[in-house]
Write a protein that binds this DNA or RNA. Structure first.
Lengths: 121, 121
DNA sequence: TATGAAAATGACAATCATTTTCATTTATGC
DNA sequence: GCATAAATGAAAATGATTGTCATTTTCATA
């Protein structure tokens, strides 16, 4: 069973707590850290199963890891220029919880992202 | 400019209006239709840009296409057994629209999925 | 009915994220 | 020091998706 390499977590934090495995790896490379892509993937998976990060997906399907404990928010993404705004999701939390309760689900999480064209595009 | 092959749309309908490109392709193969994987991808993309289908992603990131006009709903997915319940998302529509308006975004869409442990697991 | 331009098709190769394999290095207890 | 388990990373494997390109089909018009 592999444990997480602490530099991976540190890098994810430095990246704003929101990045893909590839991005974490490239960031570490650029900063001169000597680490393999495999280790980055393994560490992120380990952080995921320890519930230190969550997993969600970008529009193109690429997996992105988000630090838990970051205030839970969602994103409004421009599908043209990629500009991203963080937004509050209180309404979603309530919706997710009530739906889960209604259907007898426990330990629920959710993903919700909104995409469209920003005012500039 | 490539137009969508009508058999692709027909197959997606037959599949319940909810399937990945690979699934549509395999289904067509099994039913003896002579079509290439490339054409399936192209047709789905074309249906997407014509707004006849939407795109969303499975937990593993694989792209799934959903027929628009199917009543818009979301999913509650058991992360253990994969069991899925369709749920209404009226609250989400409102949230997405108000957030979009607040930040000046137009032509917005959204994805929202809830996952947890179902009552059996 | 011929013809030719444009669109559609599909085999195949390329790309990209992710996972697996496996040999090597590092850490740890004895 | 030594044995053993854990961690690491290079390289290959995998799987979805996209790009390329030669061929076929469609279809309006000569």
């Amino acid at each position: 069973m592999s444990r997480s390499n602490p530099r991976v977590l540190a890098t994810l934090e430095r990246a704003g707590g929101f990045a893909s495995a590839q991005e974490v790896y490239q960031l570490m490379q650029r900063e001169g850290e000597r680490i393999g892509l495999t280790t980055v993937y393994r560490s992120l998976q380990s952080l995921l199963s320890d519930k230190i990060v969550d997993l969600l997906h970008r529009e193109d399907g690429e997996a992105i890891y988000r630090l838990c404990g970051e205030s839970h928010h969602h994103h409004l993404v421009c599908k043209n220029c990629g500009d991203t705004v963080e937004i509050e999701g209180g309404a979603i939390e309530k919706w997710a919880n009530s739906m889960a309760q209604e259907h007898g689900f426990r330990e629920v999480g959710h993903t919700a992202e909104i995409f469209g064209l920003c005012s500039k595009c």
